[in-house]
Design a protein around this nucleic acid. Structure first.
Length: 741
DNA sequence: GCAAGGTC
């Protein structure tokens, strides 16, 4: 039997379909769907993996953060564990029957490694197995037939290169994460993470915020005037000096200029504006981000559109359509349905010549619409993303847009003013892709020497602004430029920074904890705080892949470097600890106590619950409550009434909860309680049964066994009956009932 | 409870 292994289930199925002369047979092996065809002696079986099916980790003995020295992780043993148990056991079962295996995973470094991971499992159960490798960049009949007609060898060096990355990421990430967390005294789910990709990314955000911190706005003035033509058309002109740094200068000019302007020159020309290039993941996220999607949302929706067959694979670096895709046929798909007028217009062209982006890779085609969706099949958000992909696809075949531009100059008492106009004369690709279109700036028809009336003169007070915070789309672009992360992980890295409470808001704003971690790393472990670590790793991986250097040599060098970093860190442990704790403390300051003026801080009670307390305790006992779960982020927004910082709560898997001013929040809660008392005979009905005083977990269990699991159940139940079945005294039950209703 | 990389 010949076993063919693809990187994902859907790829296995589609490849099998292309290669099979007849209908495929679906066979379930260890709970995994496989596809087969051919006679018993000449059978081909196709199975899809789920990306990596094994992961690297340290042995269990290293699990205790406090008992194991962080440094010991550097040269600790590394074990592999399967993460996809069903697929691994299916591989073992099939491996025993197979005489030959073809690795058909994605055509990139991780694909090679994923293939070798599967092969290792097969070799373990069948040392005789023969193997080869096929390469394809798109799952089209042409490419698949070509690939399987010309199998090649597995590139073990390339897989080793990928493996070295896994080891280095684990060793550096885990050891430094533990060291920093221990030094800061932040354990449990509050740990402070460090990694080759996340830390340099965080450093970018912190660096930008620091530029903003030190920025001093500089005042300047702008001078403009409104003019009117003889026909009564009005428009605005600006002084040729864009920014006046001295108020006196503008005042001077203002005094000098009168009520008549003369057109001194009019220049018209045309400007062409090239169609956009095909979407790869970064360009897609960036475009989706500009129409209001977060990176993570854009990718989540793209993933679901892909799984339902509406768009092609969304994780790709490629910006050039491979020749194997029949682009005309792909446009024809849309000659009915909501995009038909666009498709028909494109299909009129004799030759379809798409634009090409700078990046051409072998992994997958650029993102394009794979099938026609009906609006009713998708929700509003999905439709928006789908439409974006469809329109972008069309735009890559369209003609350039053309603008007519006008540059006019005016003279008002020897002072030069200007106005620029632009009008779209040939929409070209902008007809298909209407996003972020600049508006026409229209000017009336003007002739040189024409006299115009000056209606009013305007001086505007302005000041220079600090560089803006990064939006998600922008950050993902920068990450790509610096080589940080991959198409499939960049948005996840950003989500990780949010969930670790390193950043908040959009555009992205770092917490003081982030400052402290980045500063500590820059000082004592600079390697991991810079994107160069990735560049160096990439270069080393290239050398491993080309066979110039063995993997072990790269790993040894990396471990040595990390050991010397740890020497530095351990020598300065107290410094690191102090600096981190100072940053952490700053993130807990809510504002000043209204009673005594001391700091109000996020604190933890002896029982472990959190609250906002006054540092003047015990002289001052002002306090405010905080929600039980989630990470607390103190933002830089302040409440106008209480002058306290707004608070946001982050729970994993949920949207951030903007609680706002904790004082206002508490007052609202009190009001709601009063309201409820009024409506409920002076009593407050608890939400959960365990909120009733006298009912703990054990009693709640007994009540639940008797069918009483909600507060309302307890109110309605007959106390005598409940007492009989639960052995709880009637009096107790009556007391609870009285207390709540 | 640690990373980053696949995929669901």
């Amino acid at each position: 039997m010949h076993l063919i292994i693809a990187e994902k289930h859907i790829a296995a199925k589609r490849i099998a379909n292309i290669l099979s002369p007849k209908k495929l047979k679906k066979v379930r092996v260890s709970g995994v769907d496989t596809y087969e065809f051919g006679s018993e002696e000449d059978k081909k079986v196709f199975i899809g993996l789920s990306g990596h099916i094994v992961k690297l980790d340290f042995p269990k003995a290293y699990n205790n953060w406090q008992k194991v020295e962080s440094k010991d992780l550097i040269d600790a043993e590394i074990v592999t564990a399967s993460t996809q148990v069903k697929i691994v056991s299916a591989l073992k079962k099939l491996g025993k029957q197979a005489t030959k295996v073809t690795i058909a995973t994605d055509y990139d470094r991780e694909g090679e490694l994923i293939g070798v991971e599967a092969l290792d499992i097969l070799k373990n159960v069948n040392s005789e197995i023969e193997f080869d490798r096929v390469h394809y960049s798109a799952i089209t009949p042409k490419e698949i037939e070509q690939a399987f007609g010309n199998p090649t060898k597995i590139d073990f060096n390339l897989a080793d290169a990928g493996h070295s990355r896994q080891v280095i990421d684990l060793v550096w990430g885990a050891s430094l994460t533990r060291f920093i967390s221990l030094a800061a005294g932040r354990l449990g789910n509050m740990f402070l993470s460090v990694g080759r990709v996340q830390s340099p990314t965080l450093a970018l955000i912190v660096e930008r915020e620091k530029e903003r911190d030190v920025f001093i706005p500089k005042p300047y003035w702008e001078l403009s005037a409104n003019l009117r033509t003889g026909k009564g058309e009005e428009f605005k002109v600006e002084h040729k000096t864009k920014r006046f740094w001295k108020k006196e200068e503008v005042d001077e000019i203002l005094k000098k200029i009168g009520d008549t302007a003369t057109v001194s020159s009019v220049n018209t020309s045309t400007k062409t504006d090239k169609p956009p290039t095909p979407f790869n993941t970064t360009e897609f996220i960036s475009a989706a981000s500009s129409i209001g999607f977060t990176a993570a949302n854009a990718m989540r929706i793209a993933e679901s559109l892909y799984m339902n067959g509406f768009i092609s694979y969304p994780r790709t670096d490629n910006t050039v359509y491979p020749e194997s895709i029949d682009l005309r046929a792909q446009i024809e798909v849309f000659s009915k349905g909501p995009f038909k007028e666009y498709a028909k217009k494109l299909l009129q062209k004799k030759e379809l010549k798409p634009t090409r982006g700078k990046k051409e890779t072998t992994d997958h085609p650029p993102i394009y619409p794979a099938s026609l969706a009906k609006k009713s099949e998708l929700n509003e958000q999905e439709w928006k993303v789908y439409e974006l992909v469809v329109r972008r696809f069309f735009a890559t075949f369209a003609e350039p847009a053309q603008w007519q531009t006008i540059r006019a100059r005016f003279d008002i008492d020897s002072e030069e003013f200007k106005a620029n106009g632009a009008r779209l004369i040939v929409p070209g690709w902008r007809w298909y892709y209407h996003y972020n279109a600049p508006e026409d700036r229209l000017l009336p028809e003007l002739k040189e020497g024409e006299k115009l009336e000056v209606l009013d003169k305007i001086i505007e007070d302005k000041e220079t602004k600090p560089p803006g915070r990064y939006g998600q789309g922008r950050l993902i672009r920068i990450m790509e430029e610096l080589g940080l992360g991959t198409k499939a992980t960049r948005h996840e890295i950003i989500s990780k920074l949010y969930s670790r409470a390193y950043i908040h808001g959009n555009p992205l704003q770092p917490t003081k904890t982030a400052y402290a971690v980045v500063e500590a790393l820059e000082k004592f472990a600079p390697t991991i705080s810079k994107h160069d670590m990735t560049s160096k790793l990439e270069a080393d991986m290239d050398r491993i892949a080309e066979g110039q250097i063995p993997e072990d040599e790269v790993l040894n060098e990396s471990r040595e470097m990390l050991f010397s970093i740890f020497e530095e860190l351990e020598e300065n442990k107290d410094n690191v600890s102090e600096a981190l704790r100072a940053g952490l403390r700053e993130d807990k300051i809510i504002g000043n106590c209204p009673n005594c003026g001391s700091n109000l801080m996020v604190m933890r009670s002896r029982k472990g619950s959190r609250f906002i307390g006054c540092e003047g305790y015990p002289d001052c006992n002002f306090a405010l409550p905080l929600p039980r779960g989630g990470k607390i982020i103190v933002t830089d927004k302040t409440c106008e009434d209480h002058d306290l910082y707004h608070v946001t709560i982050i729970n994993s898997g949920k949207r951030p909860w903007k609680l706002g001013c904790p004082h206002c929040n508490f007052e609202e809660w009190q009001k709601a309680q009063e309201e409820e008392k009024k409506n409920n005979n002076g009593k407050i009905k608890p939400k959960k049964i365990t909120d009733i005083s006298g009912i703990g977990k054990v009693t709640a269990g007994k009540l639940e066994d008797a069918g009483v699991s909600e507060v309302d159940d307890l109110i309605e139940v007959d106390a005598f009956e409940l007492a009989k079945t639960t052995n709880i005294p009637v009096k107790k039950i009556r007391n609870w009932q009285d207390a709540i209703a």
